[in-house]
Design a protein around this nucleic acid. Structure first.
Length: 642
RNA sequence: GCCCAUGUAGCUCAGAGGUAGAGCACCUCCUUGGUAAGGAGGAGGUCACCGGUUCAAUUCCGGUCAUGGGCUCCA
C-alpha cells in the first residue's frame, strides 16, 4: 500500500461537496448538503449531538440573559460553538459553571427537538419583535425560502416553547446531549468580517458517551503537554522578548536543530540540481512596485524612508514625508522583503538566459519579515521574522511536469523520514485569472500528470488556485493526527511577466519562463514548532541537539568519562558530560527530562573494562558495551534519514 | 487590528489596600553514591510598564506593552 494511500484510507472524509465557482443558488444547495445525509455513522450521529448541544447552550444563555441576541451555532470539529450578543453582560469563563448547570437542567428536562416550518413573515415578525437582528440578517441574506425551518423545544410543565431558526437535524431529545463541556469564550466578528459587530463566541465539545468526552479532554491535556512553547522553554530551544514580538531568539540547542534541518535541506537540494544563493533583506520600493507587493502586500510589510532612517529625524520629518508622498523628501522608500521571489527574478534577469540554462533552480534560505497583525502572533506558529527552505524554479512550459514530479518525490521522501503522512490537493484556475486558457490547460495538465505519476490519490479543488497560477497543497499529518500546511508547489505565470523575464529558445526567439515557487518545510520556524510537538521534544538522534550525555558515577571514573566524551566529539557526535557530584539516579532523571537520546553511565566497572553502560531514552538500560560499539551505533543513527 | 482572559523569583504557582511566599531550578558546603529527585545552608523580586484614586497601591481605576484563546467553516 502506498504511503500516502494510507492516509486516505485511514481518515475517510465526509463527501463534502463544497466546490463551487458561482455563488447564489449553488451556495444555497451546498449549505443544505452538509455531511448530513441520513446515515448512522459516527460522524453523522456526533454531528447531530453537537448541533443539538449548541441549541441547548443557546437556550441556556437565553434563560440566564433573556435578551441575548443569537447569531449562529454550528457544529465544528470535535464540538460546537454559538455566537451570542448580550448588551449588559460580557461572557467569561466564570460564567461557565452557571451556564453548564443550566444546560444540564435542560438536558435533564429531556425536551424533544421538533422540526417544523413557519411562514417567512411570521418568523420575521417574531424576530423583529424580539430584536434578533442577526437572525433577521440571516433571513435577509441567505434564506430566501417562503417556509423557514424552525426547531422547537417545548418546555416542561408549561405551554412555552423555546425555538431557534434551524435546518436541523438534531437528536430526538435534549437528554442525548449529556456529554458536553464548555471550553472557552472568545470574540468573533459577525460574518467573520472586521467591519461587523464583535460577538461573543462560546466554544464547547460534545460526545456520545462519557468515555469519549473524557478521552477527548485527556487528549487536550496531552496536546498541552507537548505544546512547542512549553517544550521550547523546558528544553532551552528558543525564547522571545517583549522588545521583538513575533521574532524568535534561537538558543544554542534550538539553533542546532535549525541548522541541522537547514543544512540537510541545502545538501539535498544541491543534489537535486538547485543552486543556493544569498540575497539582500532591504530593498528600494521599486522592487516591490515591480513585483506587485507594494500594491497588494504593503500592509504586511515593514517599510521606511531612507533619509528619515539615516538622519534619525523625529516624528515631524516622518509625518511630513508621509504627507508629501513617498519620494518628495528625496529619500528612497525602503522595505524589508516579505518573500524571496522578487530577488530571484532579479538574479534570473542578471544575465541573458538560454533555454539551455533551464530549468534554473535557485535556493534561498533568506530572512523574511512580515508584519503580521499583533493578535495573530503565536509561538513559532505565526511569527514576523523567519526563513524558509525556499526555491524558485525557472523552466519552460514543457518542463513543468518533470519538475513537479521530482518535487513530489522530494516532498514524499522528506516527510516519510519524519513519519508524517501527506495528503495532496490540486487547486485549479479561479474565475479571475491571469494568463491564457491554453497556458492554464497546459499547466494544470502538467500538474495532474505529475500527481498521477505518484500513483496516489489527490483531491481536486476546482477554482482554488491563485490568480497567477495553479498549485498543489500538502496536508501534513503529525503524531496527533493534526494537519499542517508546510510544503507548497505553486506555479506562477505572472511574476516573470512583471519582471519582463525571457530566455532565448531553440528557435532563437525570446520566451517567458514559467516560475515554480516551492518549499518543502515551509518556514523553518513553523516547521520546527510542528516537529517539537510531533516528537513531543524527544527528537530522533540525527536531529537531537544533544545526542549523548556522559555521566559519571563518582569522581573515580571521571577520567574515563572525559575520554569517552572526547571520543564521541571527535566522531562528530553532539555529546556533553555531567561530571557533577550528584548521584547517578539524579543525573539520569535530569537527562531524561531533557530528552537526550543516549545516556552513558561511567563507573569504576566501565573504567576498568573500557566500556560504557548505555541507557536509551526510548528503550531503557541496554547494558554495557565497548566504547567502539556504541560509537558505531550512534554514528549510524546520526545520519539524516533522507 | 478587534473581543475576552492573563502578566508576582529562571520555571510552576499561592497571596492580600499597610512595601511578598512555596516547590523546583541556581550558589556554597557536606556527601563518592551504580540506573528517574541524598542532606544542610544561602542568594534571588521596582509584584510587566506609565498614570490616577488614597495617609498608604503590587492589590482599586485608566492607559500602554506583551502573552494566551479566538475572529473563513455562514439558521
Amino acid at each position: 500500500m502506498s504511503y500516502l494511500g494510507r492516509v486516505a484510507t485511514k481518515r475517510p472524509r465526509p463527501a463534502l461537496v463544497r466546490r463551487t465557482t458561482d455563488h447564489g443558488a449553488a451556495m444555497q444547495d451546498d449549505a443544505y448538503d452538509l455531511p448530513e445525509a441520513p446515515s448512522d455513522d459516527e460522524e453523522s450521529k456526533l454531528y447531530r449531538i453537537r448541533h443539538s448541544t449548541a441549541h441547548v447552550l443557546a437556550q441556556a444563555v437565553q434563560r440566564l440573559w433573556p435578551h441575548a441576541r443569537l447569531a449562529g451555532g454550528p457544529p465544528v470539529k470535535d464540538g460546537f460553538y454559538y455566537d451570542i450578543e448580550i448588551d449588559d453582560h460580557t461572557l467569561s469563563e466564570e460564567d461557565f459553571a452557571q451556564l453548564e448547570k443550566t444546560m444540564k437542567r435542560i438536558v435533564k428536562e429531556n425536551q424533544p427537538f421538533e422540526m417544523t416550518t413557519w411562514p417567512r413573515e411570521k418568523i420575521i415578525a417574531h424576530y423583529q419583535r424580539t430584536d434578533q437582528v442577526y437572525k433577521l440578517d440571516l433571513l435577509e441574506r441567505i434564506i430566501p425560502d417562503p417556509e423557514v425551518g424552525i426547531c422547537q423545544n417545548p418546555q416542561k410543565g408549561s405551554d412555552d416553547v423555546w425555538f431557534d431558526m434551524c435546518r436541523g437535524p438534531h437528536v430526538p431529545r435534549t437528554g442525548q446531549c449529556k456529554h458536553f463541556k464548555l471550553l472557552r469564550v472568545s470574540g468573533a466578528y459577525w460574518r467573520g468580517q472586521s467591519d461587523q459587530p464583535m460577538l461573543q463566541r462560546v466554544y464547547g465539545t460534545a460526545w456520545k458517551t462519557r468515555e469519549q468526552l473524557d478521552t477527548y479532554l485527556h487528549r487536550l491535556e496531552e496536546a498541552k503537554k507537548r505544546d512547542h512553547r512549553k517544550l521550547g522553554r523546558d528544553l532551552d530551544l528558543f525564547m522571545f522578548h517583549d522588545w521583538a514580538p513575533g521574532a524568535p531568539f534561537w538558543l544554542p540547542k534550538g539553533e542546532d536543530l535549525y541548522h541541522t534541518l537547514a543544512r540537510r535541506m541545502r545538501d539535498l537540494l544541491v543534489q537535486g540540481g538547485y543552486q543556493p544563493v544569498r540575497t539582500p533583506l532591504v530593498f528600494d520600493s521599486a522592487l516591490f512596485e515591480t513585483s506587485g507587493h507594494w500594491e497588494h502586500y504593503r500592509e504586511n510589510m515593514y517599510h521606511f524612508d531612507e533619509r528619515h532612517a539615516a538622519h534619525g529625524h523625529g516624528e515631524a520629518a516622518h509625518t511630513q514625508a508621509q504627507a508629501h508622498g513617498d519620494n518628495d523628501q528625496g529619500g528612497r522608500q525602503l522595505g524589508l522583503k516579505p518573500m524571496n521571489c522578487p530577488c530571484h527574478m532579479l538574479i534570473f534577469k542578471h544575465k541573458k538566459r538560454s533555454y539551455r540554462d533551464l530549468p534554473l533552480r535557485i535556493h534561498d534560505q533568506g530572512v523574511l519579515h512580515r508584519n503580521e497583525l499583533s493578535g495573530t502572533l503565536s509561538g513559532l506558529t505565526r511569527v514576523r521574522q523567519f526563513s524558509q527552505d525556499d526555491a524558485h524554479i525557472f523552466c519552460t512550459q514543457e518542463q513543468i511536469a518533470a519538475e513537479v514530479e521530482a518535487l513530489l518525490h522530494l516532498i514524499d521522501k522528506v516527510y516519510r523520514a519524519f513519519d508524517m503522512p501527506v495528503a495532496l490537493k490540486l487547486s485549479t484556475r479561479p474565475a479571475e485569472k491571469l494568463g491564457s486558457d491554453e497556458l492554464w490547460d497546459a499547466a494544470e495538465d502538467a500538474l495532474r500528470q505529475a500527481l498521477d505519476a505518484t500513483g496516489r490519490p489527490y483531491e481536486i479543488k476546482e477554482g482554488d488556485g491563485a490568480f497567477y497560477g495553479p498549485k498543489i497543497d500538502f496536508d501534513v499529518y503529525d503524531a496527533l493526527e493534526r494537519t499542517h500546511q508546510c510544503a507548497t508547489v505553486q506555479l506562477d505565470f505572472q511574476l516573470p511577466r512583471r519582471f519582463d523575464l525571457s530566455y532565448v529558445g531553440a528557435d532563437n526567439q525570446p520566451h517567458v519562463p514559467v516560475v515554480i515557487h516551492r518549499a518543502v518545510f515551509g518556514s523553518f520556524e513553523r516547521f520546527i514548532g510542528i516537529l517539537i510537538e510531533h516528537y513531543a521534544g524527544a527528537f530522533p538522534v540525527w536531529l537531537a541537539p544533544e545526542q549523548v550525555r556522559v555521566m559519571t558515577v563518582s569522581e573515580r571514573s571521571e577520567a574515563h568519562g572525559e575520554g569517552v566524551l572526547r571520543a564521541l566529539k571527535s566522531a562528530g557526535i553532539k555529546a556533553t558530560a555531567d561530571l557533577s557530584d550528584a548521584k547517578i539516579g539524579y543525573k539520569i532523571r535530569e537527562c531524561h527530562n531533557q530528552k537526550v537520546p543516549y545516556m552513558l553511565i561511567i563507573g569504576e566497572r566501565e573504567r576498568d573494562e573500557g566500556t560504557v553502560s548505555v541507557r536509551s531514552r526510548d528503550d531503557g538500560d541496554l547494558g554495557a558495551m565497548p566504547v567502539e560499539d556504541f560509537l558505531t551505533r550512534v554514528v549510524a543513527e546520526s545520519l539524516p534519514p533522507f
